[in-house]
Design a protein around this nucleic acid. Sequence first.
DNA 1: TCTGGGGTCCTAGGACCC
DNA 2: TCTGGGGTCCTAGGACCC
Length: 424
Amino acid sequence: MKNLFALVDCNNFYVSCERVFQPKLKGKPVVVLSNNDGCVIARSEEAKALGIAMGTPYFQYKDLIERQGVYVCSSNYALYGDMSGRVMSVLAQCVHQIEVYSIDEAFLFLSDTGPVISTEYARQIRVMVKRWTGIPVSIGIGPTKTLAKIASKVAKKKPDCGGVFDITDHSDADQLLDGVPVADVWGVGRQYAKFLNHRGITTALHLKNAPDRWVLKHMTVMGLRMVLELRGISCIPLKTTPAPKKGISVSRSFGKSVEALDNLKEAIATYTTRAAEKLRADHLIASCVTVFLMTNMFSDGPRYANSLTAECPIPTSYTPDLIHLSHQLLERIYRPGYRYQKTGVIFTGLVPEDRIQLNLFTPASSLDRNQELMHTVDRINGRWGSNTIFFAAAGIKQPWRMRRSMVSPRYTTCWDELPVAHAG
DNA sequence: TCTGGGGTCCTAGGACCC
DNA sequence: TCTGGGGTCCTAGGACCC
């Protein structure tokens, strides 16, 4: 029996989302910025051709961007998340087993008992996704996830392959792997790339042929798994049901640095509120809360970073209790006299909400009341837009809010911002 | 002036126990 | 000079992903 993986990868996903609703951006250089308009996190092909690199701070390109007329978008995750869901639901209709790997990627499992394994079928999937969502994708096929990943990169680069590349069809896969820089292998990041290059392992083929024991010693079992996958031995199975979450966190950099404890408390209350919403959406309660804060680690000036974790008296998803706890933690790590750049909250020890352990002093009825209150708040905010009801602790003016100066409308998730079609 | 956010997994080393 | 051995659990830190 033959089993294969296909990796479906949306091309320049965030840029493609913007282009679906702003067709004037087609064929033009476009970049999408991270939160706070910090760095470039997506680029159109035209922007890549101008030499704009991934992850580089926006301000470094301001001149180039102005000179070349590059169109700039602040990131709009409400839009991208919604578009992602649409792409994934099309894919789910095409195969029996799918792993949604990230906002813009999914692995499909192809076996000869399921849908037909063929580049022809993959091309049909591609056309369907484009027609139904407007998003262009590339598809790579291989005997392991790692090889499917490599194949998808080839699919993007080869002009004549129609967006689909099957590495198992390739007459000389080794020659192909020799053309792939080792840094492009899934699982090889900056540190390993430096280490490997230093030792003469510069291509995917070199890594494939590296001795097992040496790899195990220097790159742990993760490295060995990568090598075996390059050899066509599948070690990383498809995860069709998402693993239960281990943590939920919300953090943001400030639009400009913050010194006052009161402002930090507003920010922490805001992030805690958001994180608690996520908890309840997943029907979870948190046993532990961590709060962290830090100054800007890039700038000169005095630096300070700290974090503190505490256990909840009883695991909960009740926003007021969580804000109370995170404020206590913040006050304990706050030091006056620093210009803070970022703070955040992390919930861990997540358990399903129906497994709540009562303690002796908390009557069950008050928990029910709290739960009902939160449920009502979530429903109202879900219906009328987030922050229709909010906690006073989050503040109103929020001078610390992040920058998002060039954000596009929430075309698909907000009634007031639907795209408008003009006749004639 | 201006450098994202939210996750995962693995390992080494310390604490603790018998 | 010279301080057991082996297991488990937890945490911090480091690597990675998109």
